[in-house]
Amino acid sequence: MHVLFALGPGEAAFEAFETAFERAAVADDSLTVAVYGDAAERERVSASASECLASADVEWELREVDAEPAPALVELAEREGIDRIVLPGGERSPMGKIQLDSVAEFVLLNATMTVTLIR
């Protein structure tokens, strides 16, 4: 299966990414990692992600998304024939409520393939 992981800035997102690529290795999926955020964030996150992926036994490629991330992610997934989009599942408020960010919400509503949120 060809999986697209949407990797934005933030620690929680990167933890979800680590879960996703471990899973991809087990399931023998090929992984496209789409990094979004501002230019400086993308550079930093791409470097850390490449480092993780280099040591993992998984077929992967890394893309940077510099357009409005949510529609760009959905478009990329459609163009590349992605089977499943995987996203970090949102932050928690002080109370513990899950809050989906606007990227997750757009992708959930507009993707034509399966979407998995990692919590």
Partner: peptide, 23 residues
């Protein structure tokens, strides 16, 4: 439940309440 709270399992309920009652 709303937005993932309250948790369902007793251990998680306790953990969540501990945090809220002492926050």
């Amino acid at each position: 439940r709303a937005q993932g709270i309250p948790p369902v399992e007793e251990g998680q309920i306790r953990e969540w309440l501990d945090a809220i009652l002492s926050a």
